[in-house]
Design a protein around this nucleic acid. Structure first.
Length: 601
DNA sequence: CCCCCCCC
């Protein structure tokens, strides 16, 4: 039976200087081993020995494929087809970096008796020489757009000859390796920053490079700013070589790499017109899901720019320096809107008044006003990007979104510390609120519940409050000579009564006592506490009772707050109603239908 | 060699 493997592949690549173009060899895995040195991104790395049946050669698995090892898809004697790989020369040894592969059907037996290609193949066979690209024009570097380079524009003479070295995946870069070239897309470019401190002064900028395997931040100081700032454009692809690779200070960047690049005097950067390098990948968080994010978390968000606010300025408390600032309002299909703040030059130059879709990468989640977003130095902004999510948003907004009312984040939508907690908009039954012990933790819990008023306490429903028209609302005491407000230090002939209303509400699962303060209680009772108190004091029982009777048995959607409270050494939960509204049956039904459709039967 | 990411 003929071997299913690509016999001769190991020998050929062992003698090749370039990654062979267009080859998809079929090889057998002899061994998979986790190695000690983690990948550039900090993930585990796996070494895989690949055999063509005649020879075997070492390879490294790109970390994005690690799950295929972890779920045993890749294991001893599995046959694979490499659909994307690059060849690296490391200290004279050849190493295949597997960027993508397919598992081929195979019966699990070892094929042939392969030998180590490093020990058994010493002379380049004719086939291998033919497989290497022609020296003068290695396809992967010929760009046409590349400016003439002093020296030579090819690397075919072998690693190190002109100092550029072989094409490396970003993931393969490390400080221990200085002969390399990466082909990568600039996904983000900073402004030029000038600094001045005890150690000196200067200017710098940074970019983020990305290829199939990962991303890395690169910084240029002083001369490098002059040489490369204009050349490097966001979204374009470049060859970069002869730069330094340092350990990254992770605390200053959200770029997922243990290392970072510093441009040096010898650094060469050439544009590349090969567009096969991937575009920015997003991992969008819906605007309605921002409650799930931690404060200060970086996330990707896409939305329609509903409003653009005026350019403003703030003075930093830390540095005392002024910063230009502009807020915009983003909306999406969640019906929720969120504020995003742009800073500096981005705030000044933002001129997208036509409600575009904008995709943001790496924006910081804040908790001001419930949830807000802030542009971060390494964040990127892409206006009307050509991606599916943007087209979907555009279609939705033009068809219906533009006429909708959006719910802004508010402070009452609490900061969430875990995903198990209900989101502000989430409907809970009273039974669920109790079962889940909402309000029993250290933090206040927020939820929405739909319930019917069973009973309203009518003995004590209000307190006498300060009558200050400025709005004080403090409790006042009658000292026989008028009502004294200690806060305002004023005396009033009569107080204004404000509600502290205790209601017993119930649904099909349970019931509980809730408290409603003035505004909400007024809405529920349909009368002010002051008026109700007047009726009571006049002894107008029929009128007084009528209000309580008509308020009872009504169903509301209550926005609730559950908080721990100690009373007489007993810890209990206090439920406060912050808002009440008539039930929105169509909306609630749609929500329930969605929940049902998400259930697995 | 920067490394602040701000305000309400």
């Amino acid at each position: 039976m003929a071997s299913p493997l690509s016999v001769g592949f190991c020998e050929k690549v062992f003698h090749a200087d370039e990654t062979p173009e267009g080859e998809q060899p079929v090889l057998q895995i002899l061994n998979v081993k986790k190695i000690n040195a983690p990948g550039a991104s900090g993930a585990d790395r796996y070494r895989i020995i690949l055999s063509d049946g005649q020879y075997f050669i070492q390879s490294m698995l790109a970390t994005q494929l690690n799950d295929k090892v972890e779920n045993k898809e890749l294991d001893k004697h599995v046959v694979v087809k490499l659909t994307h790989f690059v060849l690296n020369a490391v200290q004279g040894r050849k190493l295949i970096i597997i960027l993508d592969l397919n598992v081929q059907p195979w019966n699990g037996e070892k094929i042939g008796d392969p030998k180590n290609v490093e020990q058994h193949s010493t002379a380049p066979p004719a086939a291998a020489a033919a497989a290497a690209p022609a020296p003068a024009a290695p396809a992967s570097r010929t760009t046409g757009a590349a400016p003439a380079r002093t020296g030579s524009n090819n690397r075919s003479a072998g690693p190190g000859k002109d100092g550029m070295g072989p094409l490396y995946p970003i993931e393969g870069l490390s400080p221990y390796q200085n002969k390399w070239t990466i082909k990568a897309r600039v996904t983000q470019k900073s402004d030029i920053k000038h600094w001045s401190n005890q150690r000196g002064e200067g200017k710098l900028f940074s970019v983020t490079f990305m290829d199939e395997t990962g991303e890395i931040r690169a910084t240029g100081f002083n001369d490098a700013v002059d040489r490369f700032y204009e050349l490097l454009q966001e979204g374009k692809v470049y060859f970069v070589s002869r730069a330094r690779v340092n350990i990254a200070k992770k605390q200053f960047s959200n770029v997922n790499n243990e290392y970072e690049i510093m441009f040096e005097n010898s650094t060469e950067i050439d544009p590349c017109d090969d567009d096969s390098v991937p575009q920015v990948k997003y991992n969008f968080k819906g605007i309605g899901e921002l409650g799930d994010c931690q404060k200060d978390e970086l996330c990707d968000v896409i939305g329609v720019v509903k409003e653009v606010h005026e350019l403003g300025s703030v003075t930093s408390k830390a540095t005392n320096k002024p910063f230009a600032k502009r807020d915009i309002q983003l909306v999406d299909q969640s019906g929720q809107s969120v504020r995003l703040t742009l800073w500096g030059k981005q705030a000044e130059t933002f001129n997208h008044e036509d409600q575009p879709v904008i995709a943001f990468k790496g924006v910081k989640v804040g908790d001001f006003g419930g949830r807000s977003l802030s542009m971060f130095s390494s964040a990127t902004m892409s206006v009307n990007p050509d991606i599916a999510e943007a087209h979907a948003l555009r279609g939705w907004y033009d068809a219906e979104g533009q006429n909708k009312q959006f719910q802004a984040y508010t402070n009452s939508m609490a900061t969430r510390s875990d995903n198990a907690a209900p989101r502000p908009s989430e409907l809970k039954t009273i039974g669920q609120a109790k079962d889940e012990q909402l309000g029993m933790g250290e933090k206040t819990d927020y939820f929405t519940t739909q319930a019917t008023i069973a009973f309203i306490k009518n003995e004590t429903f209000s307190y006498p409050a300060c009558a200050n028209p400025e709005g004080c609302n403090k409790k006042v005491l009658d000292n026989g000579d008028g009502w004294l407000c200690e806060k305002c230090d004023r005396k009033w002939d009569s107080p204004i009564h404000r509600y502290i209303l205790s209601l017993n509400v119930l649904d099909h699962t349970s019931s509980f006592w809730i408290t409603a303060f003035n505004e909400v209680a007024e809405q529920i009772m349909g009368v002010s506490a002051n008026e109700l108190m007047r009726l009571k004091e006049e002894g107008n029982d029929p009128e007084f009772s009528k209000y309580f009777q008509s308020a009872a048995a009504k169903t509301w959607t209550f926005q609730m707050m559950a908080k721990q409270d100690s009373y007489n050494d007993q810890v209990r939960v206090r439920y406060q109603c912050r808002r009440a509204g008539p039930p929105d049956y169509p909306n609630d039904s749609a929500y329930l239908a969605q929940m049902i459709s998400q259930m697995a039967f």
